[in-house]
C-alpha cells in the first residue's frame, strides 16, 4: 500500500476473514461433494441444458426489464422530492425482505387468472400464469430493488454539479440524462445490472409459486436443481456448481474493468 493512502484498520481483517469464510466454506464444501467423474454427463443432460438455456434467456430479459424500469425509478428516487417519497422508496425495496414465495403469491394475486389484472389480461388475450412471461415477471420483481438501490446510491454520490452546469449551458433534461448523468453513474449502473442478473438467475421461490414448473417453459435451473434433488442428489450438486460457475463468470466479466484484481 502506498504511503499517505488511507489503509484498512488492522483489526478489520479479522471479521472480514470470518465473513469470507462464512461465505466461502459452504461453497468449498459443495465443490467437495461434486461427483467429478460424472460431472460432464450430469450437467449436459437434456433437462439440464434446457433449464440452463431457459435460465439465461429469462435472466437476461429480466435484467433488461430492470434497466428499462429501474433506471427511471432510481432517477425519481434520487433526484426528486415530493411527499411520500420515503414511503415509495420503502415500498420499492419490499421485495428485498419479502420471502420469495410470498412474492410469488402476490404476483399470482395480481397477474393470475383471478388476480387484480387477471380479467384485463384475459380480455387482451394474454395468459401469464404457467408461461415464460411469468418467469420473467417473477425474476424482475425480485431483482428490481437491487438495480434501483445501487443506481440510486451512485446517483446520490455523483451529486448534481455537472448536471447543473450542463443545464445552465442550455441542455434539456433528457440530454443531461444521457450525456452527463448516465455516463457519470455507469459503474453503478453496471454493478446494479450485474446484481439484478445474478438475483434473477438464482430466483426460485417466486417462480415456483407463480409460474409453475415445466421443462423448457418455466423450469429454470434452480427449479431443475430442486427437482433433481428428489431423484439424484449428485445431479443436483453438479447443477448447483454449474449455476455458481455461470454466476461467477458473469460477475467477473462485468466487473473486469473496475476491480482491483
Amino acid at each position: 500500500m502506498r504511503t499517505g493512502e488511507p489503509s484498512v484498520p488492522r483489526w478489520a481483517w479479522v471479521p472480514a476473514a470470518a465473513g469470507g469464510l462464512l461465505v466461502l466454506l459452504p461453497l468449498v464444501a459443495l465443490l467437495a461433494k461434486v461427483p467429478w467423474s460424472d460431472f460432464g454427463g450430469l450437467v449436459t443432460s437434456e433437462s439440464a441444458r434446457v433449464a440452463l438455456w431457459l435460465s439465461l434467456r429469462t435472466a437476461a430479459a429480466s435484467t433488461l426489464l430492470c434497466l428499462l424500469l429501474g433506471t427511471p425509478m432510481a432517477l425519481v428516487l434520487a433526484r426528486s422530492s415530493f411527499r411520500g417519497l420515503g414511503l415509495l422508496r420503502a415500498g420499492v425495496l419490499v421485495p428485498l425482505v419479502l420471502p420469495p414465495v410470498v412474492g410469488g403469491i402476490a404476483l399470482l394475486a395480481t397477474f393470475g387468472r383471478r388476480g387484480l389484472m387477471g380479467h384485463a389480461l384475459e380480455v387482451a388475450g394474454v395468459q401469464v400464469a404457467f408461461s415464460t412471461i411469468a418467469v420473467v415477471l417473477a425474476q424482475t420483481f425480485v431483482a428490481l430493488p437491487f438495480l434501483v438501490t445501487s443506481l440510486e446510491g451512485a446517483l446520490r454520490t455523483a451529486g448534481r454539479r455537472y448536471e447543473s452546469v450542463a443545464a445552465s449551458l442550455g441542455a434539456r433534461p433528457t440530454r443531461v440524462l444521457f450525456r452527463v448523468t448516465l455516463p457519470l453513474v455507469l459503474p453503478g449502473l453496471v454493478s446494479g445490472a450485474v446484481l439484478a442478473f445474478a438475483r434473477a438467475l438464482g430466483e426460485f421461490g417466486a417462480t415456483i409459486t407463480f409460474a409453475g414448473s415445466l421443462q423448457g417453459v418455466t423450469r429454470t435451473l434452480p427449479l431443475e436443481i430442486y427437482l433433481q434433488r428428489e431423484v439424484d442428489p449428485d445431479a443436483a450438486v453438479a447443477l448447483s456448481v454449474l449455476l455458481m460457475a455461470v454466476a461467477v463468470v458473469i460477475i467477473v466479466v462485468a466487473r473486469r474493468d473496475r476491480s482491483a484484481w
Partner: peptide
C-alpha cells in the same frame, strides 16, 4: 473487490445520507 465508492450493498441502507 470493488473499489468504487458506490458499493451497492451500502446503498441499500442509504435512505437520506451517509
Amino acid at each position: 473487490m470493488n473499489t468504487h465508492p458506490t458499493e451497492p450493498l451500502a446503498a441499500l441502507a442509504l435512505p437520506r445520507g451517509p
